[in-house]
Simulated assay, not measured.
Amino acid sequence: MIRVQQDDFDVQALYKQLLKKNDTGAVAMFVGLVRQFADQPNETCSFELEHYPGMTEHNLQEIVDDAQRRWPLLDVCVVHRVGRLSVDDQIVFVGVSASHRAEAFQACDFIMDYLKSRAAFWKKETQGECSQWVDAKQGDALSLERWSQ
């Protein structure tokens, strides 16, 4: 399941969807949250996530398909929020079920690395009165390199 939505998501409900009777040996999950920007601890911070409908879901499906080719997965769930988000809001859920923990951990990590770099999302951070679009981080690109080896 892949969803891009404005509404919050229920982690417990998504977890239950990943369970496959008698086959699931492991579920690995990642939940990303909006954190307070370190350089402005006393200002109200938020950000707005935009996406390109249709293209974003296609990007996410390609990432999931690649993970399913690399590991024997039972199920994958990706939910990514868009719109205005504030500190402590949930942004993204990635969950993977597999027969064994190694595949679940690796696939979840892989999906998040590629999601951060290859999915069509744009982020604008707001600190107090100032807003700016955020460029891709060098570290995100470096994280992808380990998957090509």
Rank of each mutant, 00 (worst) to 15 (best):
R3T: 11
R3M: 12
V4C: 00
Q5I: 11
Q6K: 15
D7M: 11
D7T: 12
D8F: 03
D8V: 08
D10Q: 12
V11D: 04
V11W: 04
Q12S: 15
A13Y: 02
A13Q: 13
L14M: 10
L14D: 04
Y15T: 10
Q17S: 15
Q17L: 13
K21L: 08
K21Q: 05
K21I: 06
T24P: 12
T24W: 08
G25L: 09
A26C: 10
V27P: 00
V31I: 13
V31Q: 08
G32S: 08
G32M: 09
G32C: 08
R35Y: 06
F37H: 14
F37R: 15
D39M: 01
Q40I: 05
P41K: 07
N42S: 11
E43T: 01
T44W: 02
S46H: 12
S46W: 11
E50A: 11
P53C: 07
P53R: 08
G54E: 01
M55C: 03
T56G: 03
E57M: 09
H58Y: 13
L60C: 07
L60W: 02
Q61I: 03
D65H: 02
D65V: 02
D65C: 02
D66K: 05
A67R: 00
A67G: 01
Q68C: 15
R70L: 14
R70S: 11
W71G: 04
L74Y: 05
L74E: 08
D75L: 06
V76C: 03
C77N: 09
V78N: 02
V78T: 04
V82D: 05
V82P: 00
G83E: 08
G83H: 06
R84V: 15
R84D: 12
R84P: 05
S86M: 14
V87M: 05
D89H: 12
I91V: 15
V92H: 06
V94Q: 05
V94L: 00
S97T: 10
S99A: 15
H100S: 11
A104W: 04
A104T: 04
A104F: 06
A104D: 10
Q106L: 12
C108K: 02
C108M: 09
F110P: 02
M112S: 09
M112H: 09
L115E: 06
L115W: 02
S117C: 15
S117H: 10
A119P: 04
W122C: 07
K123Y: 12
K123G: 03
K124E: 11
T126K: 15
Q127L: 15
Q127W: 13
E129G: 06
C130Q: 15
S131V: 05
S131R: 10
Q132G: 08
W133F: 10
V134W: 09
D135E: 15
D135P: 11
K137Q: 15
G139D: 09
L142T: 11
S143D: 14
S143I: 04
E145P: 01
R146D: 01
R146M: 11
W147D: 00
S148I: 11
